[in-house]
Amino acid sequence: MLAELYDPHATLGTNRPDSPRLVPSGSDVYAEWRGDKAVVRDVRPGFGAALAGVRPGTEIVAVDGVPVAQAAGAYLPACLKAPDPAARAYALNVLLAGRHHAERRWQLRQPGAAPIDVRPDYPRPLLEHISYPRRLESRRYGRTGYIRLHNSLGDHALMAPFDSTLDALLDTRALVLDLRDTPSGGTTTVARALLSRFVSREQYYQQHELVAEERAYGVKRKWTELVSPRGRRYPGRVVVLAGRWTGSMGEGLAIAFDALPQATVVGTELARLNGAIYFYRLPNSGIGFSLPAEKLYHIDGTPREDYRPKVLVPPAAPPADAALDRALQLLK
């Protein structure tokens, strides 16, 4: 049923060992079709694909010995009236994320080279039970501060360490806020807590639309959410880093910062997850599932899933960090 929706933001609340991993939180590579070729566009640093030598421009030739187009067919919806590129892209990236219980085996071709076989989950599957030693990290680049969040936008305990870290960086003239490792989204409470340290007055930060009400009654329901100032405001310029593993509430934060005059968003396209999800439960099995039920927009009216950073930086192969280099260059 989920394949019929081909929406990574529509998920089940339970898994079996043979269930596909979630995209993007359980993936380490993002690829697109170029005709019948599956070509990697971005790689998640520190995980199996990057460690196996996969980089932007790599072609995935086969998965588990099966040609990639044939293997991706298992994840395509069965009921489309006509082919949809979005369905093909969904199937490809779910295929490459793999299943919880199975080791991935890929055949790759780098530009101008012969195919090679790699095992992104050898000697252990790094995408299983991902954990971080801390919720955030910080450092300084001269008079520029840097804060990177580690997939903690759903953790209310993030607020206190974020406040103390930002307070320690109030003497810097600029700040880089790195949201490129927030694939699992979070809550608006945490997002507003972070954003509130960068505004001096109440202001709008995103629009919502509940489409079901208009479908049921013919009356549109749309509203704009506010963020209020809290604590000492960070006074300097801000660059927000975002990318393919900036998902859901991370995307919401990116579009919110994009609306602030002192902030610039730098990076690649984001996860492009649709709207806000609502949680439901099947009455007999008790299995929970989430579906996007609210449209979300930038305050300028751009749908959140269509937003792109003002400063686009092509992905670089780890350990290079082109987006951070560009951010520091902008802040000089």
Rank of each mutant, 00 (worst) to 15 (best):
F289T: 04
A317M: 00
R281I: 14
L273F: 01
L253Q: 01
Y280L: 15
A320W: 01
A254V: 01
E305M: 11
F257A: 02
P292L: 14
P319M: 10
A316M: 07
F289E: 03
F289R: 06
I287V: 15
F289K: 04
A276N: 07
R308S: 03
S290C: 05
V313Y: 00
A256R: 04
L270W: 04
P261Y: 04
A317G: 04
D300P: 01
A263Y: 06
K295L: 15
L270I: 06
R281Y: 07
Y278E: 15
G275I: 14
P315F: 11
F289Y: 02
A322W: 05
S290N: 05
P315V: 12
A271L: 07
R281N: 06
A256T: 11
P314Q: 13
A254W: 07
G267Y: 00
V265I: 14
F257P: 06
Q262A: 13
R281T: 15
I255Y: 01
N274L: 10
A259F: 02
A271Q: 03
F289H: 02
A259R: 08
P314G: 12
G275D: 12
A320T: 05
D321W: 08
A276I: 13
Y297H: 12
A317I: 10
E269I: 05
R281F: 09
Y278V: 09
G288A: 05
Y280C: 04
A316Y: 08
E269K: 08
T268H: 11
E269Y: 01
A256S: 14
A322E: 02
